[in-house]
């Protein structure tokens, strides 16, 4: 007797593979990106099946939404002038097929060696959870046990946004046509949604201490809301003074650097949180990370000097 859950799992898995195949091998680039967006949505469903609601929240915003916007925008610029397709020579194709198949077989062989039941670090985290400042496992790993990892992850995000801002310094980005950005329907929707997004990301940030949610999910959601505002012609991030934007983008890294510096001077370990006040510190860090993740996401998509109003010389 096959349970309903197995049927659902297998359908999600098959759907993922089919969408990936379509996205990778369809000849039209636009169709390929559309399939990739659908792939991101189904990934969010897979995270839910794996009992990872934190990941589902982030994937729904990132995989399905933001990556799609980025790809579509780049495709319009690059594919408009020159085709981006290159038919690989049959030798290259054959070699790539063989290598990929070999890697796949090796991975499956390794997978069969993996014990089907293992606790991993689940028990260790559960035992140490009362010692940390928060009650949610994922948040405690991110901001307490492995805070050093998160420190450097925020640094990676900062590097990426610097790369994008430098490369797009003189670029004129336009994601949707002028007449749409002025559309009353779109601005009406955005006007209704913006407060909801703001409240919900605040909720996610607060919930992160004891339930699924936290700085990264709140940050990407807030960033997606910011992009929606920019698309509807309401300029928030793109009108920020450059100096303020730079400071806010580095808020997460700066927070971590300040904290670890202070702790070192006080004679503690690098990110060894003091017992008293640890919760306040963690929440302050979460707010800093969420703000810089949100602004990073908006900056990655809209570039440094987005102007959605039509330039004067436009015919």
């Amino acid at each position: 007797m096959i349970g309903l859950e197995v049927v659902f799992d297998v359908s999600v898995a098959v759907l993922l593979v089919v969408l990936a195949l379509e996205s990778l091998y369809t000849p039209n680039l636009f169709t390929s990106i559309a399939f990739f967006i659908a792939f991101g949505l189904v990934m969010a469903l897979a995270w839910v099946r794996l009992q990872a609601p934190d990941l589902a929240l982030a994937e729904a915003a990132v995989g399905a939404g933001l990556t799609g916007v980025l790809l579509l925008d780049a495709a319009r610029e690059i594919a408009a002038v020159r085709g981006v397709e290159r038919t690989p020579r049959s030798m290259v194709r054959l070699t790539s097929l063989l290598v990929a198949a070999g890697v796949g077989v090796a991975l499956v062989a390794a997978l069969l060696e993996v014990p089907p039941r293992a606790a991993g670090l689940a028990e260790a985290v559960r035992e140490a959870l009362p010692l940390t400042a928060v009650e949610h496992g994922v948040t405690s790993v991110l901001l307490d046990f492995r805070a050093l990892d998160t420190f450097f992850e925020t640094a990676v995000l900062l590097l990426a946004v610097i790369t994008v801002l430098v490369l797009q310094a003189h670029q004129h980005v336009r994601i949707i046509p002028w007449e749409l950005s002025a559309s009353p329907v779109l601005s009406g929707l955005v006007g209704l949604l913006a407060p909801v997004v703001l409240v919900f990301s605040g909720y996610l940030l607060w919930a992160g201490t004891h339930a699924p949610g936290g700085a990264f999910q709140a940050g990407v959601l807030l960033g997606a809301g910011g992009i929606l505002l920019e698309l509807a012609g309401v300029h928030t991030v793109s009108r920020l003074p450059r100096r303020a934007l730079r400071w806010l983008l580095s808020l997460g890294v700066a927070g971590f650097a300040l904290l670890s510096g202070t702790l070192l001077l006080a004679g503690r370990g690098l990110l060894e949180l003091p017992g008293a006040g640890a919760r306040t510190i963690v929440i302050a860090l979460e707010i800093a990370i969420a703000v810089s993740v949100a602004l990073t996401v908006v900056s990655l998509v809209v570039g440094s000097n987005l102007r959605l109003e039509p330039p004067e010389q436009e015919p």
Partner: peptide
Amino acid sequence: ALSGSTACYL
């Protein structure tokens, strides 16, 4: 419902 109808309009 709101976002679906807006996307449809766009």
